[in-house]
Design a protein around this nucleic acid. Structure first.
Length: 611
DNA sequence: CTCCCTT
């Protein structure tokens, strides 16, 4: 089932970049160890208001052309030069001087990735490459390319065992076939070209719910066909209601907006949207950071019915007046729990406060994720109509137990050796190594490269082009080891990930569930090995225990003991978050439960499947 | 605290 929402490798690998990064694992090495003082990104980001509320472009653009762009870069590449200040800080201005004004320019003067090789720049950069506004490879428009990679073996029958639970008032009946979805001709054709024969459970239930105009909070694993579950009914409605054929305009007012927490993920969703919208008058567009803004603006202005985006760039586009929200009918939050957690919540609130945007009563809001901490569910109600439906889809004894989860007690300092050890015994099978920090990702990737393990890495401080290249190299098998931060934890659909290694365990259990969900999919056996550092991971032990037992995994006795001792006095350590696929409106009983002898997870039917 | 999110 991995293949379902598969991002097309080709889309991420441009011929031009092939040369530059051809030897990615080798080449990456040279880039890894560079000092990285962190970019102004974060500081400026979480800091305060963003340019976008200003709507006043002059300020924004002025910043672009002047200090910011390179300041930004300087922070990233400049290792150590005073880049902490965030963009627009004086300290960054220094960085700018280093590469003269040549490269910073307007969006119009961007460099295609091939030019990245410019020897002069390379020479002078030495750890300080000038900012090149990256233009992702133009995706081919031909049918063949759009529908590439649809012929993977999908075990549809596996889905018959899935347990489904719908709660909420008056849910519509599920459909059993795509015919019942009453899709128009071109959509039907696209569906079958995509290789879908019969709907998956999330589609069987989700499609009629959306078609009926209901708001939805859906709990389903990535790769279970959830993207199609919301795209199809949305596209169908738009076409049925005869949306104006998209055409050039200085202001575009999309009928649907889809947001996701990472660039790679939104790109993947966009690819799906292109498939299903092929040959229709509905035009999907994608926007995200790290690539040329001007390019994306032009793409939007050509016509935009379904806008996919990461929050920052999306808000930027709205703030620049390129995108209006008054015609919005559908708002989709993918990885919704992530979109509503601390990091993104302000952006989401800002989004739903955009000028002209219909209130929640006057639009349809759809949320999808594999995990829904209960506090997040409560907050999600701010975005949903009160009668929203909750849909939980799980594979009984399925995906989760297809992942063999093992734990190794390792202290911080022994982790590196242990990892190498592990990789040498597993050979070249595809392995995704999760680490806690961006710095650590560079560090470990460099180390593995030195040990002749073909490794690449992905994290938020890498150039967008590098991120895409890394993913492409991992997918293609050129680099069978990918070292990643949580940027790769969710949603990414990479077939044949044989192993997931939690070099560092995440701090929260949902993240753990998402991470190990990168493997063991589609009936394949996956393996997840986690390095458990008793000094650091004690807090997680209890919820790990619950996850393990629910997935019918063996629990090491030391972990059990650790959980016992870490939980302190009975009931004093209730799980902060539950990770179950349970409608928080159902009684709300498990609040109270969590302080009793109940395990961390509410005892409902949805044993399975958090992905 | 870190991660991810515009310029």
């Amino acid at each position: 089932m991995d293949d379902w929402e598969g991002m097309e490798t080709t889309a991420l690998t441009s011929p031009a970049s092939e040369g530059t990064h051809g030897d990615s694992w080798n080449n990456d090495l040279s880039k890894f160890g560079r000092g990285r003082a962190g970019r102004g990104f974060k500081t400026s980001f979480s800091g305060r208001g963003r340019g976008f509320d200003g709507t006043d472009r002059s300020e924004l653009d002025g910043g672009d052309d002047g200090v910011c762009e390179n300041g930004f870069m300087g922070g990233s590449r400049g290792g150590g030069r005073g880049s902490r200040g965030g963009f627009r800080s004086g300290g960054d201005q220094g960085a700018r001087g280093d590469f003269g004004g040549g490269y910073r320019g307007k969006d119009e003067e961007v460099f295609a990735q091939g030019e990245d090789k410019d020897p002069q720049r390379k020479g002078e950069s030495e750890g300080e490459r000038p900012k090149v506004t990256y233009i992702p490879p133009t995706l081919p428009e031909d049918e063949e390319s759009i529908f590439a990679h649809y012929e993977k073996g999908i075990n549809f029958d596996k889905y018959d065992d899935i347990m489904v639970d719908v709660s909420g008032i008056n849910p519509p009946h599920a459909i059993m076939t795509f015919e019942e979805a009453a899709l128009c001709e071109s959509l039907r054709r696209n569906v079958s070209k995509t290789g879908y024969v019969k709907p998956t459970p999330v589609q069987k239930h989700g499609i009629p719910i959306i078609t009926a105009g209901r708001d939805l909070m859906a709990c389903a694993q990535t790769g279970s066909g959830k993207t199609a579950a919301f795209l199809l009914p949305i596209l169908q409605q738009l076409m049925a209601d005869g949306v104006a054929a998209s055409s050039f305009s200085e202001l575009q007012e999309p009928e649907a907006i889809i947001v996701a927490p990472t660039r790679e993920l939104i790109h993947q969703i966009y690819q799906e949207a292109r498939k299903f919208a092929f040959g229709t008058c509905v035009r999907p567009v994608v926007v995200y950071g790290g690539v040329s803004t001007g390019h994306q603006i032009r793409d939007i202005l050509r016509g935009c019915n379904v806008l996919c985006g990461t929050p920052g760039r999306l808000l930027d586009m709205i703030g620049r007046g390129k995108v209006g929200c008054s015609k919005l009918r559908y708002l989709v939050l993918d990885e919704a729990d992530r979109m509503l957690d601390m990091g993104f919540e302000p952006d989401m609130r800002r989004l739903v406060a955009s000028p002209g945007i219909p209130s929640k009563e006057n639009r349809q809001t759809l949320m999808f994720s594999a995990t829904y901490p209960e506090d997040i569910q409560r907050m999600a109600a701010d975005f949903l109509k009160t009668d929203y439906l909750f849909l939980a889809v799980g594979v009984v004894g399925g995906a989760c137990s297809d992942v063999e989860q093992t734990f190794v007690q390792v202290t911080k300092f022994a982790k590196r050796e242990k990892l190498l050890d592990l990789l040498q015994t597993t050979g070249t099978e595809r392995t995704l190594v999760f680490v806690e920090t961006k710095r650590q990702a560079d560090f470990i990737a460099t180390y593995l490269c030195q040990e002749k393990v073909r490794t690449t890495s992905i994290h938020g401080d890498r150039e967008q082009q590098e991120r895409e290249q890394a993913l492409a190299d991992f997918r293609s098998g050129k680099c069978p080891v990918l070292v990643a931060t949580s940027v790769a934890a969710r949603g990414l659909d990479i077939p044949d990930v044989n192993h997931v290694v939690n070099f560092d365990l995440p701090h929260n259990i949902d993240e753990y569930v998402h991470r190990i969900g990168r493997t063991g999919r589609c009936g394949n056996i996956g393996r997840a090995v986690s390095f458990y550092d008793p000094d650091a991971d004690g807090q997680l032990s209890r919820s790990l225990l619950t996850v393990l037992s629910k997935a019918q995994q063996e629990v090491p006795s030391w972990l059990e003991e650790s959980a016992f001792s870490c939980s302190g006095a009975a009931g004093f350590n209730p799980p902060r978050k539950s990770f179950a696929a349970t409608d928080s409106r159902k009684g709300g009983s498990f609040h109270d439960n969590s302080t009793s002898s109940q395990p961390a997870v509410p005892q409902t039917a949805d044993e399975e499947e958090w992905e």
